[in-house]
Amino acid sequence: MGTSHGSHRAALLAGALALGVATSLIAAAPAMAAEVKVGGGSLDWGFKASFRAYVGTGNGTPPIAVKDGATRNADGTFDFPATGGTYDAAAGTAKVTYGGTVVFSYPLHMFEITLANPTLVVDGDGTGALLADVDLVANGGSTEQHLDQAEIATVVTTAPAVTDGAVSFSNLAGTLTSSGAGAFAGFYSAGSALDPITASASATATEPEEPQEPEEPQEPEQPGGSSSAAQKITAAVSGGALTLTSAGSAVALSAATPGQTATGNLNAVTVSDLRGTNSGWDLVGQVTDFASTGGATIPAANLGWTPTAAVAGTGLVAANGVTNAVAPGSPVAPGTGLGASRTLCKADTGSSLGSSTCGAALSLGIPESSAAGEYSAVLTLTLA
């Protein structure tokens, strides 16, 4: 699920959405005499900055929540406190568990992803892994997945910095695994680079801060002073981007026989016009011919759609005099369909600012001359 400026493309494959459920466990290094039980430390990680930015524009309440001891850092990443494990400073090995939960919620795009209790494994040979518990609920509850301590990322490790017996690992490069890609609903493919990981572990817990002495009460001001004060507040608003995001990358149509119509729904897409120019946009789609594994084809023109469009609410009061409006494209029947470029939705000049969600009911007419088989095609959406 990427975004870009100018022309934007999202390829949606007509096939079933596959979520990886394989769980790989990485064994910790053998116990050695120098191995230390973990008493304190923390792990800072943000999964992926682009994903946080995307979810942060959604309608969750809130879009990103932390609990069970996890906290949000100033840069938007997350801090998880150490809960146990061991490390060997001399060997540069560690298996440290951290506590806390992060919830990514986007009801409008029909998903909620919960990541909890990450574990960092460092093997001392330049490799490692990040494990976590992940729960995925998507598509109105029809897609659910629960993983316990699944390998979310492979990690390139370096020798730890050692201070007074404690170890710290800084900016470790992480790469998404197939399990991680499935757990995050296929928003990113396996092999995608993730945010760097910074972690620490020590034998003793972090000492709590000493309670501060209460301040002495201030003397009340003498009468005769001003009862109000004014401060001028300024804010610079810079232009952003015109972006396209998709709630999924695959669509499974219903089964049909020759002469019937296979139906389904396009994954919802969101267009955000944050350029500040209110200059309008147009989102169009076109599909390739459907091809079967046996070499048979169904012409692209046989895929029709009935578009839908709605303005995405934010809860904020609209800027004075600005109206956000979006219109769906015209329905297209199978036989005269998406073999040519067709409009899914559009916003005219003067009403395009803000975010809108577009979708479509899909209908694929199956010619009576079609051979049996499993067919697929690629639908490309282009934003301009």
Rank of each mutant, 00 (worst) to 15 (best):
A201D: 01
K48Q: 14
P258Y: 08
V137I: 12
F169K: 07
V66Y: 13
A291Y: 00
A28P: 00
A377C: 13
D135P: 10
G191I: 00
L115V: 12
S292R: 04
G294S: 06
T277L: 05
A318I: 12
V96C: 03
A372S: 15
I152G: 12
A318K: 15
T57M: 01
H5N: 10
P331V: 02
C358I: 08
K346N: 15
T83I: 09
Q218W: 01
G259A: 00
A18G: 05
V102T: 11
D195I: 06
D289Q: 08
T61F: 03
C345Y: 13
A312D: 04
G339C: 10
V284L: 00
T23Q: 04
D135M: 06
R342I: 00
S4C: 13
G337S: 07
T206L: 03
G180C: 06
E144A: 14
F51A: 08
L17K: 12
A310L: 10
G248W: 09
A138L: 09
D289V: 14
D44N: 07
T177A: 03
G365H: 11
P299A: 15
V378E: 00
A250M: 02
I298T: 03
S238R: 13
A312E: 09
S178R: 07
T101Y: 07
A129D: 04
A377N: 11
V284H: 08
A236P: 10
L115K: 10
T101R: 12
A371K: 11
T204W: 02
T257I: 00
S352H: 09
T77G: 04
Y87H: 11
T3G: 11
V322Q: 11
G276Y: 05
V55D: 13
P223G: 14
E374S: 15
H146N: 12
Y87G: 03
W45G: 03
A29H: 09
S200C: 03
G140M: 01
D148T: 14
